[in-house]
Design a binder for these strands. Structure first.
Length: 500
RNA sequence: GGUCGCGUGGCCGAGUGGCUAGGCACAGCUCUGCAAAAGCUGCUACUGCGGUUCGAAUCCGCACGCGACCUCCA
């Protein structure tokens, strides 16, 4: 099995649009870069999906034994609002609205972002660089682009010369665009622009006097262009060419396309070997986006305090909901789907709990060894096939049925010996907790000994009532406990309890 | 308008040209004083029309419907 675990890992490279075997540049090291959030407002569930997707990738790479340097940036400057001529820094705009310092906004929403990531059990990256912390690197990159003839200054701003770049390089390769098609499809609102071509994009932008976030540069006071930070920081921490770059589908063009162009222009080599893009979370078939106003925050999700939500759902329910769909497919949000996921997750987690507290009966005929062999092989196969979590989870559920069949009400796993049971426990714990990143959300019966003892007193009272055939009394006890969130279950081996 | 993608059973959602995805819901049964849980059984779909093929949900074409990107967006 150990060989199989390592077994070839295939991922869809959106650059070639094909599944390719993943082979790191310098095994066992893997360089992974993911575009992080712009911290000018709360993250919504769509953002969470992308970070969950790459969290899954990160976890799988770690599980396969790779040493991963995972860089996920915080964009705290530079993206413009609206069209370029009256462009305004999003963060600065928000700062004025809230009467705060720009860096206060950055701090506030960075904190919020981190809190959400913790809620959804998304692992921290190895490095989380900020754009403002890498001005020198960005300015330096602009210089290199100019030196190589692909950037030009105009009125204090510096633009990337796309047509010139396209003469020698494949601009549009990632997003499948052709330069002349782009030309003819340009929206014609440029007019008095400083750009030589409408396709050109700013790599350094002059700051107007009222602009709050600005830095000195060889071209005057300004701020870095939209796409530059990722190029500068990925180069700094992962090298000129690194293994995997991830992000949401919506960043493919122009953001990632521009990253490629910048890196090639500055340093002469393509920055990324494998591009991966996560698909969108939709609501009623439409992309969830801040600009659509159809997004909701994780807090609204948990409390259910939003018009799209019939009630609240836990973060793990949502994580599981997302994992039941392949990362490259759009996923449509709905209350019914969430409720289904909630039930499914409960079934899975209960089985894991049952498994973990089970004791082996000792009399094994090896059936559960071969069953696990099959499950393991399938699960690894599916994960290695472009992170096919829906199929992997389906396999997990096959095992859940086996577990439920084997473990009796007294917690004895019939037909298992110690070693077998240990293997099952290890496998399920690795897949469910380490790889899928799910966690137990409700306190378990054994967590609180006082509580457990208390409930057992009631169970004893009820057993006495039952023995006297006083079912009215026994049912009343059960109902009253249920009202407090305690569920009693009568089994052949006695009564057990759990939280609802 | 251009580029790309999608259209699967009551719902969500996988899918390799031929062999049961899975989850949820629903129905019946077993267990049970009743219930809950669990197990068993049933529910067999692939937008439409052509084509390729011994055979297509899976390949090709056309039509219809939907979406993403083309502007900040995960």
């Amino acid at each position: 099995m150990s060989e199989l675990k390592k077994g070839p890992f295939w991922i869809t490279n959106t650059l070639t649009r094909k599944k390719e075997e993943f082979v790191p540049q310098a095994p066992p090291h893997v360089g992974l870069y993911v575009c992080g959030p712009t911290v000018y407002s709360d993250v919504h569930l769509g953002n969470v999906r992308t970070f969950t997707t790459f969290d899954l990738l990160y976890r799988w790479l770690l599980h396969l034994g790779y040493k991963v340097r995972y860089v996920r940036n915080i964009t705290d400057v530079g993206h413009l609002v609206g069209d370029i001529d009256e462009g305004e820094d999003k963060i600065a705009k928000r700062a004025r609205l809230e009467q705060l310092e720009p860096m206060e906004i950055v701090q506030k929403y960075t904190n919020g972002f981190h809190a959400v990531m913790r809620q959804f059990n998304v692992l921290s990256p190895s490095i989380e660089p900020t754009a403002t912390g890498h001005l020198i690197e960005q300015i330096d990159m602009v210089k290199r682009i100019i030196d190589h003839g692909y950037g030009y200054e105009a009125n204090g701003s510096v633009y990337f010369d796309v047509p010139k770049f396209a003469e020698k390089h494949a601009y549009g390769e990632l997003s499948g665009r052709k330069i002349d098609e782009l030309m003819s499809n340009t929206r014609d609102t440029e007019g008095m622009d400083e750009k030589r071509s409408p396709l050109d994009f700013a790599i350094w932008k002059k700051a107007d006097p009222i602009h709050l976030m600005k830095w000195p540069s060889p071209w005057g006071e300004g701020f870095p262009g939209w796409h530059l930070e990722c190029s500068a920081m990925s180069t700094k921490y992962l090298g000129l060419t690194f293994d995997i770059h991830g992000g949401g589908m919506d960043l493919k063009f122009p953001h990632h396309e521009c990253e490629i162009a910048q890196s090639i222009a500055a340093d002469g080599q393509a920055p990324v070997r494998y591009w991966m893009h996560g698909n969108m979370l939709t609501v009623n078939g439409r992309k969830m986006a801040k600009s659509e106003g159809n997004g909701f925050t994780p807090e609204e999700l948990v409390t259910g305090n939003h018009k799209l939500l019939e009630r609240g759902y836990s973060p793990m329910t949502v994580r599981f909901f997302m994992l039941q769909c392949h990362y490259a497919s759009t996923l449509d949000f709905s209350n019914a789907a969430l409720q289904a996921a909630e039930k499914g997750l409960e079934r899975l987690m209960k089985a894991v709990q049952t498994l973990n507290s089970a004791k082996a009966s000792g009399n094994s005929n090896g059936a559960y060894t071969s069953a696990l062999n099959v499950i393991e092989e399938l699960a690894y196969g599916h994960m290695n096939d472009d992170l096919n979590t829906p199929r992997m989870i389906a396999v997990l559920f096959d095992g859940v049925t086996e577990i439920n069949k084997a473990v009796d009400g007294g917690g004895v796993a019939r037909g298992f010996n110690e070693a077998e049971l240990g293997r099952w426990k290890k496998f399920y714990s690795e897949m469910v907790f380490d790889v899928l990143g799910l966690q137990q959300e409700t306190a378990t019966a054994g967590d609180d000994t006082a509580m457990d003892g208390l409930v057992k007193v009631f169970i004893q009272l009820r057993a006495e009532a039952k023995a006297k055939k006083d079912f009215a009394a026994s049912d009343r006890l059960r109902d009253q406990l249920l009202a407090l969130g305690i569920v009693l279950k009568d089994t052949k081996e006695g009564t057990t309890w759990e939280r609802a």
